[in-house]
């Protein structure tokens, strides 16, 4: 099985540790993951802001990078969701039947990390060790667009030493929403403040989620509040081992 890592632009540029964690985790599970260096961004920031024309060249780059793999793993529910639910519309916009066909071929091979681990590799206990109290925020696109369900929490519950605490109103959006976070900053922060409050209520040391973008927003608020709560990508927790600790 040829597996590619779609690291996502935000992890590449801002949160490389999440990408490194996926690599370490997959290596440990015996997957020889490749990183196609041609990849850049799935185009979601453009699509969700209304700039479809600007997303077309990004789709071409995406197709060039990920054509031919059996599976593409993305540590992001949002970016995997964009590929599976929005690339068809971007491809149609291009008017290029070749691009439409390529997008159709590749979209179903793209998995969010927890989907890949549970559905493709068939593992729940990934052999991780993380002796901390953790609460988990199910990001909207992983929850509602992809329907990952309880896969991430099944993976977390199997982590040795980890104590998982329920997050109140977990399924409520954190308010990130891509450019929404800047275009409607006041509303975004009002939503994020409630999320941060619920996180603090749990008393957890670490907030875990499957999207660095949402974590950047909630973590930005938690940090500004001097809450002491650390945010970590799901991949970082799953990659942690006793040796590393």
């Amino acid at each position: 099985m040829r597996v590619a890592l779609m690291v996502t632009c935000i992890n590449d540029a801002m949160f490389p540790d999440a990408g490194k964690a996926v690599v370490r985790l997959l290596h440990r599970l015996g997957v020889d993951v490749e990183f196609p260096a041609a990849q850049t961004c799935c185009g979601q920031p453009m699509v969700n802001t209304g700039y479809l024309d600007e997303a077309v060249p990004l789709l071409r780059t995406f197709v060039d990078a990920f054509e031919g793999y059996d599976a593409v793993v993305a540590p992001s529910g949002s970016c995997a969701g964009s590929v599976r639910h929005q690339h068809a519309a971007v491809a149609r916009r291009s008017g290029d039947p070749g691009l439409v066909a390529a997008a159709e071929r590749i979209s179903p091979t793209v998995y969010e990390l927890s989907e890949f681990l549970v559905d493709v590799l068939g593992v729940e206990d990934v052999g991780a060790f993380f002796p901390h109290t953790v609460t988990y925020h199910p990001t909207c696109h992983s929850l509602r667009m992809l329907g990952v369900g309880d896969r991430p929490t099944r993976l977390l519950r199997a982590v040795h030493g980890l104590r998982l605490l329920d997050l109140p109103a977990a399924d409520q959006c954190c308010g990130f929403g891509g450019t929404f976070a800047v275009k409607n900053a006041d509303t975004s922060v009002a939503m994020g403040a409630d999320k941060a409050r619920h996180v603090r209520e749990t008393g957890a040391e670490v907030l875990v989620a499957g999207d660095s973008s949402c974590l950047m927003h909630i973590g930005g608020l938690l940090s500004r509040q001097r809450s002491g709560v650390r945010v970590m990508h799901l991949a970082e927790v799953l990659a942690a081992t006793e040796a590393a600790a």
Binding site: V7, A13, P16, G19, A37, A181, V189, G219, G220
Partner: peptide, 30 residues
């Protein structure tokens, strides 16, 4: 960008991006 940093902290961009790390190590340095 102030619409972000006025209300939310933001980490400094890392010294090494993921792709730079990969091209340096091939993903095998850790």
């Amino acid at each position: 960008g102030a619409a972000w940093t006025d209300t939310r902290d933001l980490p400094r961009p890392p010294a090494e991006s993921f792709r730079a790390w990969w091209s340096r190590t091939g993903g095998r340095d850790e």
